[in-house]
């Protein structure tokens, strides 16, 4: 009984969370999706490395760091474009996007250099 009630609680909790999240603006959802996509790609590479060993270690690092870096940058973008963050109220989302693009380009230049 207790178990079913706790699972029911959990279901309720998730449902509440999901409904709360559904209220999020679409552009933030896109960014969230993008972050998840990047992290999953990184995860697959980590699994690959765990399976076959880390021989071209620089390649592995650049692959994972590319994903993680992109994810971090995307999180930063999400913080800046979120209207509820009063801190960045004066910052235009376009400006934040420009920063995001620039940082990504610099990050990937380094990644490519490191890729081998």
């Amino acid at each position: 009984m207790a178990r079913s009630s706790s699972s029911k609680d959990a279901q309720d909790l998730f449902r509440a969370l999901w409904s709360a999240y559904a209220a999020t603006p679409t552009n933030l959802k896109i960014i969230d999706l993008y972050v998840i996509y990047a992290l999953f790609t990184a995860l697959i590479q980590v699994v690959y490395m765990a399976l076959v060993g880390s021989f071209p270690f620089n390649s592995f690092l650049s692959g994972v760091l590319s994903c993680v870096g992109t994810a971090v940058l995307a999180v930063c973008l999400r913080i800046q474009v979120n209207k509820e963050n009063k801190e960045f109220k004066d910052l235009a989302p376009e400006r934040a996007f420009a920063d995001f693009v620039l940082c990504n380009l610099v990050l990937h230049l380094v990644i490519m250099n490191f890729l081998g």
Partner: peptide, 26 residues
């Protein structure tokens, strides 16, 4: 030691899956 090529190719295709998931999500 290098992994067999098939394994590497499988994982290459696996990395595309999140991208497809991303597109579906969009």
């Amino acid at each position: 030691k290098r992994p067999p090529q098939e394994l590497s190719l499988t994982f290459l295709s696996l990395t595309i899956l999140p991208f497809i998931g991303f597109l579906v999500g969009l």
